[in-house]
Design a protein around this nucleic acid. Sequence first.
DNA 1: GCTGGCACTCGCATGCGCAGAGTGCCAGGG
DNA 2: CCCTGGCACTCTGCGCATGCGAGTGCCAGC
Lengths: 339, 339
Amino acid sequence: MFSERRLEVLRAIVQDYVGTEEPVGSKALTERHKLGVSPATVRNDMAVLEEEGYIAQPHTSAGRIPTDKGYRLFVDKLAAVKPMSPPERRAIQSFLDGAVDLDDVVARTVRLLAQLTRQVAVVQYPSLTRSTVRHVELLSMAPARVMLVLITDTGRVEQRMIDCPAPFGETSLADLRARLNSRVAGRRFADVPQLVQDLAEVFEEPEDRSTVATVLSTLLETLVEKTEERLMIGGTANLTRFAHDFPLTIRPVLEALEEQVVLLKLLGEAKDPAMRVRIGHENAHEGLNSTSVVSVGYGSGGEAVAKLGVVGPTRMDYPGTMGAVRAVARYVGQILAES
Amino acid sequence: MFSERRLEVLRAIVQDYVGTEEPVGSKALTERHKLGVSPATVRNDMAVLEEEGYIAQPHTSAGRIPTDKGYRLFVDKLAAVKPMSPPERRAIQSFLDGAVDLDDVVARTVRLLAQLTRQVAVVQYPSLTRSTVRHVELLSMAPARVMLVLITDTGRVEQRMIDCPAPFGETSLADLRARLNSRVAGRRFADVPQLVQDLAEVFEEPEDRSTVATVLSTLLETLVEKTEERLMIGGTANLTRFAHDFPLTIRPVLEALEEQVVLLKLLGEAKDPAMRVRIGHENAHEGLNSTSVVSVGYGSGGEAVAKLGVVGPTRMDYPGTMGAVRAVARYVGQILAES
DNA sequence: GCTGGCACTCGCATGCGCAGAGTGCCAGGG
DNA sequence: CCCTGGCACTCTGCGCATGCGAGTGCCAGC
């Protein structure tokens, strides 16, 4: 569609604009890059690129800046993911190795990502639906009150209070716990609802019947509700790096970042472990129309148990950011596999 | 020290400045407040207040703005905590009542505080040291790997992975769990270290000895490390409300908010349940020199199990903010007492 | 199809003048 | 003794004109 040189011009524009944060003109371009042609030629190429919607001028007779479409082409065709240097890899690994539990792993990952990319980092906790149940614990907190604790193979722990309709004996509780565990331990969360259904029918003692039903239904409820994923964000201070533009622009971003729902949508439906870049208006949420999101799945095996990524201005260093995100995801996966 | 009227002038300056965010002059003051004196008189009072360091002028021949010292006097002597209106109280209560577990309580509290005060909210999880142990669970994850789960009376759950020096039989594990629980359940966290010390001496089986020691020492470690309190923040988007001043000012604040350590210091050493206001330079951390922190303890009984508060510009509505913080703390305490 | 040249367009920084708000000080009055 | 009205002074902020520079589009020529 475009000549080799025109693509080269676009690449140069993206690189320069990302570096300087200022509209780039034809003269400056020919000076900084060895394109082998004169500014006038570059101007012609620019005119074409602009007509096709890959670049734009903020004001008449200013330099050009890439549009979302321009960045898209750059990411898809013109740029290669930049691998981390060996020292960087070592730093990542040793930083993550110090984690003592899942919370710590996630917290460290967020800090790491934020520092490496100098952008806002978002890390999702390993999803419940794609995890397996390690253990179910039932604790009597008060005569008619039970605490349900669910522990997953990824080290995630969920708890829920249950108010029972009637007091519940210690022995019945122990019995129920044993039965639950024997059925449920080692199974995938997604399979649990069916298993629990079956279990309800087995219980016969009338006096405990309603209580058992309550406990089981709460368990189900928890499975459904808590599938709603948790996540952690960090590095919001990095937003101020490009706020010389406008507080106007960081406000909606901060607001979006406080909405778990928005963030979860942002990372993308989680099955797909592939790296994904959403640029500017490709983001559904309009507060994020001037930001790009780079996300990728991570997990202990070949499959993704959750996603992580960064949020930054559309004017970001895509190769470097993608490299950092990919590397971090890889190492987090390793850490999880070990625990 | 000051005549009644001079104090009144200071109060008026604080109120107007908080409202308009602009330096306030003598004429405007007499127009908006019925001081019963002329602008000239007010000017004399202002001159005195300025000499004493309670107010200052940003530039020669501009209006006056309160200094940290001025706000301090205002908070201590001139302002009363503004109680919430009945509808507001109801809204708070019903919003918090919907919470299903501790995470949810904390999350809702943060949202609520941020909305009510339109500032950044910080809520500390109930502290471990002031909680009691409900249950200790030991789960075998792999032959030589045990997961330790601690559950407190406030509903907080902490987990830790333990790598054992040698494989550990299911029965030994159950035995240890039983012993641990019988000693430790119902005791305050602060008392646990001594109890565990005693326990170590009781075990005799040589083959399990080292494993038991490992588990116990990790338990102790967890108690110490995790006493390091967790917290949750929200409402950072509110920072942009006064960022028309400067991205310069919100940057260090965002950075400070990402440092757990700083935040914990900020809320104050936690024993004291009293409301506390730290104004501008009274905050040790210099990124927060132009912000004020209003914090208060909350808890189920008379004693504080943790703290919560808000961070905002020194130019904030102190009576309203203090009222909201106090009210929220009270209702959170109630909720915790119920669970 | 590339190049150099040329006229044109804006954005941005600079400098000036002016209005407005606020001050300090002083002399006069209850 | 304290308050008041008046007056001269000092800044800030804003609107406006000006000049400069970077960048553009177009065109004729190689």
